[in-house]
Computed example of a mutant assay.
Amino acid sequence: MDRNDFAERITQSVDGLPGQLGAAARYVLDNPGDVALLSMREQARRAGVRPWTMTRLAKRLGLDGYDNVRQLHGEALKEQALGFSGRASAQLARQKQEGGGALGAEMAGTMAAQIAAMAAPARIEVLAGAARDMAAARRIYCFGLRSGRPVASHLAYVLSFLGDKTVLLDGDGGAGLDALRFAGAGDIFFVATVSPYTRASVEAARFAADKGLVVVAITDSAASPVAPVARHVIVAATESPSFFHAMAPAFAAAEILAALVAGEGGESALEAIARAEEHLAERKVHLHERPQPPEPR
């Protein structure tokens, strides 16, 4: 279990935790830096609970004690402090020792396991809930920057087969979030962002939530800074033996989400997809040439 797994476990159980346990859980979720750096007693004081409540919380969530909670958060903080260059140094040293094949195989296995984890009932329930809201919305605004941008762009492209209600918010020309001036309560703001979180993505999600939009986030942790403003937090793991975080799980989540939105659309979705396919055929967008048989010798 890593810090992100632990944060997700807290998120799934926090509403059912009584009294001081609930207060302690919310403190841990909202203050990951304090958990890594402050003593248990100081954390308990700040959370407004008794010190032994922190230990009870750790055991309630499957750990031996609160030192394990602090260790998980300390490792995450250390990993973040390393940055891309620090992780690159570790990767290069390991690749030199074990070979590129071993690293590549581990990366493939790690990503396969992360994508398979999407099938967990709790995660599918979040995806299905987000899809229902997205299918019912008047507009869906998709936003992502840096590594989150292709995820948002891919989702917007797939949803474009279902009609014209999906808008990809683009920064080209400095327009940025200008299209949100037409947005209102009940519309969807989809955002993709993972650690190290892009400040503009977090601020955009907060802005959309303040306008009354329903925020759907694909992110890497239930403790992500976009989580507090999101109605639907879709967690996609990013841990990788590479110097760079893995985005394949986020793409998988986006593709599942798009498929579920299409399913919620019923016959109207089928009609829209047929129209899109007819349009592409008329413009000869896709190459459908038959392979030529080999010439006789």
Rank of each mutant, 00 (worst) to 15 (best):
V202L: 09
P196E: 07
R123F: 05
I140H: 08
G176F: 01
F143S: 01
I115S: 04
F207Q: 11
A137T: 02
V191L: 02
A230C: 11
T166G: 02
T219V: 00
A128K: 12
R181K: 14
P228H: 09
A227I: 08
A217N: 05
V202C: 00
I140S: 04
R138N: 13
D210L: 13
I218S: 04
L145D: 09
I140L: 05
C142M: 07
S160L: 06
P196S: 07
G163L: 06
A156Q: 01
Y197G: 01
V194W: 00
L145A: 12
R139W: 12
F207A: 14
T198V: 15
L155Y: 03
R146F: 12
K211P: 00
A137D: 10
A185I: 11
R132L: 08
P150V: 02
L155W: 06
A113V: 11
I115L: 07
G176T: 03
V229I: 11
R139H: 15
G176D: 06
G174I: 06
V214P: 01
P196L: 01
L168Q: 07
Y197M: 00
Y141T: 09
V191E: 01
L180M: 09
Q114I: 05
A116H: 13
A122S: 15
A183K: 08
A205T: 05
F182D: 11
R231G: 08
A128Y: 10
T166S: 07
T198D: 15
S195V: 07
A135Y: 02
I124H: 14
L159I: 07
A137I: 08
P121Y: 04
D164Q: 12
A135E: 01
L159H: 05
L162C: 09
F207R: 11
S195Y: 12
S221Y: 05
D133W: 03
G163K: 04
M118C: 15
L177E: 03
D210F: 07
G129E: 02
Y197L: 04
V229P: 07
P228V: 09
G144K: 01
M118L: 15
A223D: 06
G212P: 05
D210S: 15
S160F: 11
P228D: 03
E203W: 08
C142A: 15
A217F: 01
L180Y: 05
K165D: 14
P196Q: 05
A119L: 15
A175T: 13
A179R: 07
F143N: 08
S195F: 13
A223R: 03
